[in-house]
Simulated scan of single mutants.
Amino acid sequence: MKVDLFDFELPQELIALRPAVPRDSARMLLVEGGDVPFRDFSVSDLHSLLRAGDVLVFNDTRVIPAQLEGRRGDAKIGATLHKRIDLRRWQAFVRNAKRLRPGDRVEFGGGVAAIAEDRLADGSIVLAFEGDEPVELLLERAGRMPLPPYIAGKRATDDRDREDYQTMFAREDGAVAAPTAALHFTPNLIDALDAAGIGRETLTLHVGAGTFLPVKVDDTDDHAMHAEFGRIDPETAERLNAVRRNRGRIIAVGTTSLRLLESATGEDRIIKPFAGDTSIFITPGYHFRAVDGLMTNFHLPKSTLMMLVSALMGRDRMMAAYEHAIANGYRFYSYGDSSLLLP
């Protein structure tokens, strides 16, 4: 399919630079299948839009301060870690990478340094961190939260982002981008969902910086999707399969949860335990096996995530939904408002 089919014009003032306060006061657009009119709600209404027996599936990855600024001699080097290789080595997208050669040492301050080991086919650099301390501790000392470029290009990262850009479910270190659909959840909303008989499960997908990379090809067939590590344990898989047997719906909270669920599910619609990389690329024409709905924020034009939601609801339906959202002043992207997609 032509990538231009997923393009739209977004007024810059609709890009959210801070989350709603409280988080569940964000707006939420209900998009149902067919010609049902779009309906405007608040995220705090979610419990009334689902049914007892439905289950929400969250991503419990935790964002690490994966952006680093350093020097190799006189050269300024910026690095955004995006995928762990092992205990001490990470793949990183590097600013000013032409000044780095294999074997060069980059100092990031605070006693944190890494050796550039290799340049990979996607343009990223393998960085091997020096010392014995866990890399996560080094990043806490020298790194900052990796805000998306559409926010970081408009304001500086600050201490608020350490909390704002983390979901209440975050516990597994490793993401360099937040699973932003879950940023809207609060203890009060969880209490309301519990009272309504709506369950919840968690899985882990460590979101990489590749999620923000633009699609640079003209046709979706030519796009190479980035890989991310994910895990679904056997007990979670079995409970989710039981939901389906009991006629409940599986609602993914965020495209990251959806992509991992679909990666772990066969043609028989049975969700299996999973531990490994996934590079699944979902475009219109894809047959969904695991999920019955999706809660997600509003995405970038011509992005792989815009293609994913179009696969779930239909391209024309999603383009109309985005037109409604723009006309009604919905806030877009990571810190923006939400949508609930129920095909």
Rank of each mutant, 00 (worst) to 15 (best):
116 A>S: 12
110 G>A: 10
225 M>D: 03
39 R>H: 08
104 D>T: 03
193 L>W: 10
32 E>D: 07
189 L>F: 06
231 R>K: 13
277 D>Y: 15
9 E>T: 13
22 P>F: 13
58 F>H: 09
139 L>P: 02
208 G>T: 08
167 T>A: 02
194 D>L: 08
232 I>P: 01
107 E>T: 11
286 Y>E: 12
168 M>W: 07
323 E>R: 14
110 G>R: 08
167 T>E: 05
215 V>Y: 03
329 G>W: 03
56 L>T: 06
51 R>Y: 04
151 I>E: 10
336 G>K: 04
295 M>P: 00
257 S>K: 02
96 N>A: 15
79 A>V: 07
320 A>G: 05
105 R>L: 14
236 T>C: 13
342 L>K: 05
54 D>Y: 01
252 A>G: 14
7 D>M: 02
164 D>N: 13
258 L>R: 00
310 S>A: 11
152 A>D: 15
286 Y>N: 01
167 T>W: 10
3 V>S: 10
46 L>W: 11
62 R>I: 00
21 V>E: 15
244 R>V: 13
31 V>M: 08
245 R>T: 08
199 G>Q: 10
301 P>C: 05
52 A>G: 15
293 G>I: 02
89 R>P: 08
263 S>N: 12
173 D>R: 12
166 Q>D: 08
124 S>A: 13
288 F>V: 07
38 F>P: 00
44 S>K: 15
59 N>V: 13
51 R>H: 13
169 F>H: 03
327 A>T: 06
34 G>K: 09
34 G>M: 00
227 A>P: 03
111 G>P: 06
237 A>G: 06
191 D>R: 15
138 L>V: 05
12 Q>D: 15
146 P>M: 06
249 R>V: 04
62 R>G: 08
198 I>S: 05
122 D>S: 11
337 D>E: 02
182 A>Y: 05
164 D>F: 11
70 G>K: 03
280 I>W: 02
94 V>F: 04
205 L>T: 06
60 D>Q: 14
278 T>W: 11
108 F>Y: 07
48 S>A: 14
283 T>V: 15
213 L>D: 12
62 R>S: 08
252 A>P: 11
21 V>Y: 10
227 A>E: 14
112 V>P: 00
95 R>L: 14
100 L>Q: 06
111 G>L: 12
52 A>Y: 03
296 T>C: 14
52 A>E: 15
34 G>I: 00
309 V>Y: 00
297 N>Q: 06
128 A>H: 13
147 L>K: 02
99 R>L: 12
31 V>T: 07
313 M>N: 05
129 F>G: 04
292 D>I: 04
103 G>H: 05
82 H>D: 10
189 L>C: 03
339 S>T: 13
141 R>I: 08
250 I>L: 11
134 P>C: 11
305 L>R: 02
241 N>T: 04
54 D>P: 03
65 P>W: 09
290 A>R: 05
159 D>Q: 06
146 P>I: 11
143 G>N: 10
135 V>K: 06
206 H>Q: 07
94 V>N: 09
153 G>A: 15
106 V>M: 04
18 R>E: 09
17 L>V: 11
16 A>V: 10
56 L>K: 02
238 E>K: 12
268 D>M: 10
238 E>F: 01
64 I>W: 02
